[in-house]
Amino acid sequence: MLDRTDSAAETNAVKMPEARSYTAARQHSARVQRLKIILPVGAALISLMFVLVSVIRSYIPDEISVLGTKIEDGRIVMEKPAIAGRNKDGINYSMTAERALQDIRDPNFLTLETIKAAVPLNDRLIARVTAERGDYDRSSDRLNMTAPFDIDLSTGLRAHLASARIDVKGGTLESDEPVTIFTDGSSILANSVKITDKGHLISFAGEVRVNIDPVAIRNNKQQSGLND
């Protein structure tokens, strides 16, 4: 822009000196006129960009890493979200899903599809959750399992539940629908289950049925060397 005004200045050199300074003045004011428009518009644009970036940034919480995002009918769709964090005992938990759908109106609420979560119940016990879908509330770290799912405890215990509310950070789980638990050699069925105290207390209620397979008793006997 500057060089253009110079060339204009040269052509004026031939004219009367007063004319030269008058045209220069007029060009200056024209330039000021333009800047008066460009600068605010530019500033607005930049701040808008900044707002947009931070808005998107706030939607995607820092502990979520995402392969890609796109917006589909009013919801942010995240591909392969992975959520990780530490629970209050400092044991880290992780959760991955095929897709996470996030409502723009409520960024804390995610609907997850094809979930795989590792929820530490205590320093020795980790529960691996696999489910078709669930709703994850980021603000409270609660996972509301709305479809049947499985939990595999690192001790070999496998639980199948119809639905449940899991507090990922607190390491608790509650379900008031039928649950079946299999361990090697025995099974537990009940109408509801509550896992609290970081997995140390498992409470079943409603038509509890426990089947202990003789194999389990026998190899316990051999293990502990009891004579029959």
């Binding site: 207390l201 498992i202 409470s203 079943f204 509890v208 089947n211 008793i217």
Partner: peptide, 23 residues
Amino acid sequence: NDQPIQIESDQLDVKDQEAKAIF
């Protein structure tokens, strides 16, 4: 010890740290 055991009850609390299960 060669036959399966079936246990039924209204409630079952498995207390890991106290190594006991209360029906």
